[in-house]
Nucleic acid binder design. Structure first.
Lengths: 157, 157
DNA sequence: GATATTAGTTAGCAAGGCTAACTAACTCAA
DNA sequence: TTGAGTTAGTTAGCCTTGCTAACTAATATC
């Protein structure tokens, strides 16, 4: 790779990084209106794929088991999740989203996506093609297809 | 707008949202290696534009004054920032990044951008054109040009 | 059946949000 | 010019959400 090409790559990566940060900061503005904390919304999004064990949830959320244990207890108290014993293994706890939890997640996600859709309102067909191509590329590069939604926890980037 | 077009917009916004989340989650992995907390890195990035008052910093970081006051005190203790009195107004504190702080920020940012650049390594010229177009569009839509860098604080999205 | 492993919980600490209440400094009008 | 109001920042104290260490209970293994 020539130095010039490398510099171009760096600049593109930098701009992509910055754009992603600011895009999410914008999208996140509506989160408090869901009435559920960001960490809980994020965990709920994982549960949309079906019930999960505490360990699976912790792994998906990239937190340690005690953190998820406490978070799920709070979610239970808030009425957005249920804890059920695993019939086959007495150690395992299966966590389910409640209808209330699903509604909160749907609301939060809809508000975030609506904020982004609003940003995209002015895109012409060419912009749209470029965005679709770019998003598709990023999805492939990250090795993700139907990527789950995650809410912000405390992250500012 | 036809229902179909609207659904397409929604889907694109949703995918863009998800891609941004996962892109940043990937980029953030290297942050701990800077030896400076994410919140401090983010504040340092604001200081790259020159000294700021505590209030300006708090506004830029979207936190309250006491939060920034404490954060800057920790940054001072860590040697990445200085607090200087404002000669014209005795109430005002001017915060400067130190050389150590600038180095930490540069290191963190370089690692993040390198992670993204690594993801982009396989992009062909067409992908690159689409990415540049898409990033340019997002930058314009967000009304930002030379966007400052912000580190994650605790946000998971 | 004894031992090791695994899933989850509890306890306690740190970072980083917040509000309330305070001090010090500045502004302005009587 | 001085007294009231405003503004910048700090302190104190709370909450959430990370963490590790140490524990219990259940399962697996030899």
């Amino acid at each position: 790779m020539t130095p010039a090409a490398r510099r171009t790559d760096w600049e593109l990566a930098d701009r992509l990084h910055s754009a992603a940060i600011h895009l999410l900061r914008r999208a996140r503005r509506t989160d408090p209106r869901t009435g559920v904390s960001a960490a809980q919304l994020s965990a709920l999004s994982v549960l949309m794929g079906g019930p999960k064990t505490l360990g699976d949830l912790a792994a998906a959320e990239q937190v340690r088991a005690p953190t998820m244990s406490r978070l799920v207890s709070e979610m239970k108290r808030a009425g957005v999740a249920r804890k059920l014993p695993d019939p086959a293994d007495g150690r395992v706890v299966r966590v389910h989203a409640t209808a209330k939890g699903r509604r909160a997640l749907a609301r939060g996600r809809a508000m975030r996506v609506e904020a982004i859709r609003h940003l995209l309102a002015r895109c012409d067909p060419e912009d749209q093609r470029a965005l679709e191509h770019a998003v598709g590329f990023i999805e492939r590069a990250l090795g993700q297809r139907a990527a789950p939604w995650r809410s912000a926890t405390s992250d500012r980037s």
